[in-house]
Design a binder for these strands. Structure first.
Lengths: 253, 253
DNA sequence: CAAGTAAACTGGTCGGACCAGTTAGTTGCT
DNA sequence: AGCAACTAACTGGTCCGACCAGTTTACTTG
């Protein structure tokens, strides 16, 4: 009684097979970032397909963030190293199209960012700690100078946390979802933030997170970050969202 | 002293502008999933570009998971509803190309899966609970019947947890990273699992997680999942990975 | 009126062509 | 001989026109 499981008999498109072959060559390390693919005209003879087909395949690979084409370049399309851009784009699309609720986004961010703080508390080095401290101080100084430079300092602070977590996956996803939340909130409501009071609250929260990370207490860092973010977003969530939040951050009660 | 900030003067590619316009129309809800775009020949007159240009744009949108083209369809490319596939693809690519370490992947999975368990403990309904129980029982029954059907039951169990978390973002990312871990481990080492003993351990772990979720205790559910996954992967991680794990799962000590 | 067929579409692929930009090799000048 | 300017070759971006195989629609025919 051998269980045979047939797979969908999908028609094979020519350009897809070109994509497959090149993608395999890249992810397998056969071609490494920085190297160059053959030119389109060279590829069309190697694959025995027409140039439009080659170009459609290259466009797909480009939208996956795997390669970049530059006209005039004598050396053909360049193989890129990782970039968070296509992932961020997917996140943004999902957030907007996929009926992804603000609740889900906020929960996701809480999970990622508090975990990053836990990791950072243990893995951060002096240089990264210095960056965080510097960013917090700049936030403090910029409270009076309008929201633009303040927000930049705020972003720098969070970026240094991601960096200190030593986990690129956390960083990329966290930053992507943070951006999506900003977009979603910007279009849903007037940003009630940007007032001096809200800025001072932000500084206080970030300072608390910084202290916990600096002390090396991962539990405290996680708890502080969790409750800070939770409290910040709680007012925007519905009842079920609040219940979920309490499950993620029991220390809120 | 007004701060002007110039943006990169990127040359505007024709097909990119077509992508932009269609993408905007889709994410803004102007065209909803299930509806159809005009045919390629119709699009080329609307955009005043040639068909190759239209096709390159459609290929990009297709690789983003936004549309699907089917030859012969009288109604043009269909606008799709969300799918996790492009996101999963991005994850897989990042995992393999981006020098993403197993440590990072495992940390990420622990964070997502334990959080899903916390949420599921509070938000799960009876039907989802039933699914989990059913899956665990099937795992138990299939221990003797080879790894194939056992793994299927295992996957079903985790899938029902994701479902019960009521957070699609967690689910998509969690499943994507789980797949990447499997791939990475499969090619790095012989799968030492699949033995009856390893299967029984899995059953025991999943049963513990199930009990915690069923009891509605989110803290216990999170702790159980965290330590279960951590213990499972600990042997594969390096020293820094272990330190990070301890930061994420203090109850391990 | 029903069944079958033919015409009018669809997307997939191909070949050839032109343009603007970059680059490398060559030429010409000092 | 060394260096600068120029030219020719090649790159990707865009376009045109054409053909094929498949599906859908509408018409013709029994």
């Amino acid at each position: 009684m051998s269980k045979v499981s047939f797979s969908r008999a999908v028609p094979v498109l020519t350009y897809e097979r070109v994509v497959e072959q090149i993608e395999r060559a890249i992810v397998s390390g056969e071609i490494t970032p920085g190297q160059h693919l053959p030119s389109e005209r060279e590829l069309m003879v190697q694959f025995s397909v027409s140039r439009p087909t080659v170009r459609e395949a290259l466009r797909v690979l480009q939208s996956l963030g795997l390669i970049a084409s530059k006209p005039g370049s004598r050396s053909g399309p360049e193989v890129l190293s990782m970039s968070s851009e296509p992932l961020g784009r997917s996140f943004a699309i999902m957030a907007r199209i996929a009926s992804l609720s603000l609740t889900e986004l906020v929960q996701f961010r809480i999970v990622l960012e508090s975990s990053a703080c836990q990791l950072a508390a243990v893995l951060r080095n002096e240089e990264q700690l210095k960056k965080m401290q510097n960013a917090v101080q700049r936030m403090e100084a910029e409270v009076a100078n309008g929201s633009d430079s303040f927000n930049r300092a705020d972003l720098d602070f969070h970026a240094s946390i991601w960096e200190a977590s030593h986990n690129d996956l956390l960083r990329v996803c966290g930053q992507a979802v943070s951006g999506s939340i900003l977009n979603l909130m910007n279009e849903r409501m007037e940003r009630s933030a940007d007032t001096a009071g809200a800025m001072r609250d932000s500084v206080e929260r970030d300072r608390a997170i910084y202290s916990a990370i600096a002390s090396g207490d991962s539990v405290a860092a996680g708890d502080t970050a969790r409750s800070a973010i939770s409290r910040y977003f709680a007012e925007y969530l519905d009842e079920e969202g609040i219940r979920g939040l309490k499950a993620l951050a029991p220390e809120l009660t």
